[in-house]
């Protein structure tokens, strides 16, 4: 049918041509230039730019904090998705809408607020700092703000899957003598597992690239609270364009691998059950 459309509907050449042109100019050519720029470094230079001690500390923080944030979101996201789909309670619509706030709110605002909430005199810091919980200018602060920024992904990928769960299946489990916990761990969890993984990976990928909110809360101390995207900026500010490009390439490889993993996981889970 779609092939026939080409003879009936107008604008195939124009729309495809424009799409390709726009995409090449805005996305593909710039990325190629980045790769070329990075490749102008010799291998020792590249390695020095990408794998120096400070950079490695930054990658570790980026990966570790992103992973932790995604992990926390896995739990909170599942909880919120479950509550939103399964239960009725007052204010549910507003609750549901507010889940998207981290997507709609500029990351700079998130960073600004989080930087003020967890300091000693902040709304939450006044309780937490005395307990030894340093929620600002620390690695914890990075994790906290990344949780906020990537929070909706798990909710929004898991929510439709929970909506589609077949009530019969849970009833069948109950008839067979399973209690709710057994039903959840043995029947529900395996069914929503692939959505959970997808949500986790999306949250993780988003957190890896995040910059705006983190620079507010982390303090950006090299070796301690500096994340990888900050390296790019500091290289740039030192006019080390090739080094900046090299780190950027490393970052790209990281997030592409994360996305590739999502895709493989998705295909694997789809092939298994459908």
């Amino acid at each position: 049918m779609l092939d026939v459309n080409r003879r009936i509907l107008p604008g195939f050449g124009l729309s495809l041509g424009y799409t390709l042109l726009y995409m090449n100019l805005l996305v593909l050519i710039p990325i190629t230039v980045l790769a070329v720029k990075a490749s102008q470094l010799s291998w020792p230079e590249f390695s020095e730019a990408v794998f120096n001690e400070r950079a490695i500390a930054a990658y570790q923080l980026t990966m570790g904090a992103s992973f932790l944030a995604a992990l926390v979101n896995l739990v909170i996201g599942l909880l919120i998705a479950w509550v939103l789909v399964r239960y009725r309670f007052p204010g549910k619509q507003i609750f549901d809408a507010l889940v998207d706030l981290p997507f709609a709110l500029p990351t700079a605002v998130a960073g600004l607020v989080y930087s003020s909430l967890y300091v000693k005199k902040g709304w939450l810091g006044q309780f937490l700092v005395p307990l030894g919980f340093q929620g600002s200018y620390s690695r914890t602060a990075v994790v906290l703000v990344l949780i906020f920024v990537s929070f909706p992904f798990v909710v929004r990928t898991v929510q439709p899957v929970i909506e589609d769960l077949d009530a019969d299946v849970e009833e069948a489990a109950a008839c067979l003598g399973a209690n709710r916990l057994q039903t959840f761990t043995r029947v529900i969890l395996p069914t929503i597992l692939s959505a959970l993984i997808t949500g986790f990976a999306l949250a993780f990928a988003r957190a890896i690239g995040e910059y705006g909110s983190v620079v507010f809360v982390s303090g950006n101390m090299p070796y301690k609270t500096e994340i990888a995207p900050v390296l790019v900026v500091s290289n740039l500010e030192a006019f080390q364009y090739k080094q900046a490009a090299a780190v950027a390439v490393a970052l790209l490889v990281l997030s592409f691998s994360a996305l590739l993993a999502i895709n493989v996981l998705e295909r694997w889970s789809r092939r298994r059950y459908v």
Binding site: A172, G177, P190, L193, R272
Partner: peptide, 18 residues
Amino acid sequence: VRERNVGFVFQHYALFRH
């Protein structure tokens, strides 16, 4: 229901697909 020890068969099977 889980204490009644009934066997229940659903129209759409309700098998555990995983």
